[in-house]
Write a protein that binds this DNA or RNA. Structure first.
Lengths: 179, 179, 179, 179
DNA sequence: CATGAATGAGGCTTCATTCAT
DNA sequence: TATGAATGAAGCCTCATTCAT
């Protein structure tokens, strides 16, 4: 009796939970230990095969982690002010330094996936940049991609230091004003 | 007995030449193929053991290569004008992107060696920065280390693009002027 | 209560159909892609569990496929003439080279199953052989099993070549005549 | 004293011995356990890397083992009589059944190496075959490759049985006589 | 001193089999 | 009963490091 009541049915829940565990573990491992898949499964407490079911290739996992970061950044870009957004983005990026450091040398920058993500990010930032330009707040030779470059360089370049990045961003923003 | 008789004494020159060969090979390999020690010995045409005699650990070789890069940058900093130097440094750095990309993820940033190199670099840049400050050309809250950070970020940050770095540096330099 | 009421009883037909699908898929996969169970379920469009319900071990599937091949060969042996049958059998075997190549290294030749199948095959060929012997067409030291060996060797031995097997079979048949 | 006397110099000896150990281990493993490289190193009592230094790819090891078999067969073919040779070859092949069974599914038959070995073998047998043909002992439509096929089929085909192979070879040889 | 063979830990990946739903 | 997710043993291979000659 009660076969149709929503009791004790959970198979998909497991799967989703495992995927989440793997992504979380990956972020943690990447933040501190490099990019070993073995380390990820170990930390997730799951079998090797499970990782491969969810992410059939190395790249697939890296990309999934990366995509999530881009999403967060994209969400931020709904700000309506370029300067506010750049400051906020810098703060958020400071949070992820270890992970980016591990991920950067391991991602295949030629993959179509990468181009798509860049396009998404650029689109999100372009709105802010165009509005600032229209308002006469910035020079026109600086593109949305350039703005990303500055943020990424200040956050993840060799020698980057979160406690100085804000100051340097401000200098850059000053320089950005027309004249 | 007779340790000091001039019998078949291998000249010091040989040793120095091998060291040089290894460093050169390492720079070439790092520039194009990643950071495999085997590739280095292969390209140097020397045995594994010889590599280990000169550089007893992985890290030691990486550091030796790194030190040489710092030297070149340091030499450049004998310029007498901050802006000229920054522009020149950017150009030089563009030259070494592959190598830095291979080296960065592999260097232990905590090593005391690293602090020493930074200090050397900072000392070299400080002169330029202090002179610019004295001449009222730049704001005082920017340190010599900050200047390095900007150069490194624009050159080697994720997304860095040599063809845009110059433009971005100019924006930054503009922002650097007092007021 | 009501175990025997006609509620949603899955028809036997389904089960039989799935078994058939799996066997067909297995033959196709073995013919071209090796002997991976995963490939079989994928091609059959069924779940892993279903495969295991029908064939509780790897070996069981292999044997079922093998048994089917034996059946076909057995059916052929209703010919009434040894030479005609051997020629026809050779032609049929040429058809299955890929599958046999995949199956052979994977079957456990010690299994009792194997003895049974051999016995079946031997029984089928024995009739032909005995009749040929009675008619004075062949030497008596050659058994039915020997005849199978020759066919299998010419078809599936290393270096076997369908375009030469017929010629070689004819030589063998010539040699088989008494005197 | 005595640095120049041939004492305590043995490095190459080690290498050659290890290579031999690996080949021997490989033959033993292939004869009984399939074709796992791990099993080979385990049986040889050597490290993984040593196997890879001597045989940089899977194929390299398989080919080295295979080449040795071909050599033995080739040496045999210095017989001056086709029938004697075929009988002797059959006896030798009986010795290697397990190994061939393991090796056959794993060798890349398209590799140039394979073509070379076949050519060597064919060349060796052709002499015997041509002499027999000139002496009017065999039909002319049978090639040296065909002779190899028969031997291989009788020795290594599915169902092959050393105790019957001799009888079957004799039937074939009878059939081979002109008329 | 130079050489390069040997070592083995560690990472990657596949796939037969089990098991929860 | 069917499904497919999870598991983990087992194989492959690379490469930093050691060590015998």
């Amino acid at each position: 009796m009660g076969e149709d009541t929503p009791v004790a049915r959970k198979p998909r829940a497991d799967q989703a939970r495992n995927r989440e565990r793997l992504l979380t573990a990956a972020r943690e491992v990447f933040r501190t230990d490099g990019a070993s898949l073995e380390a990820v499964t170990r930390r997730a407490g799951l079998g090797t095969g499970t990782l491969y079911r969810h992410f059939p290739t190395r790249e697939a996992l890296f990309q999934a982690v990366y995509a999530r970061e881009v999403e967060e950044l994209e969400a931020l870009a709904r700000e309506d002010d370029l300067e506010t957004w750049m400051t906020a983005a810098l703060a958020m990026m400071a949070t992820k330094k270890g992970m980016v450091t591990a991920l950067a040398p391991v991602l295949d920058k030629e993959a179509p996936f990468f181009t798509e993500q860049s396009a998404r990010m650029t689109a999100a930032v372009s709105g802010l940049r165009d509005r600032a330009l229209a308002a006469g707040q910035i020079r026109d030779e600086i593109t949305a991609d350039d703005l990303m470059r500055v943020l990424l360089g200040l956050s993840y370049g060799p020698g980057a230091d979160a406690s100085r990045a804000g100051v340097l961003l401000n200098v850059f923003l000053d320089g950005l004003r027309p004249r």
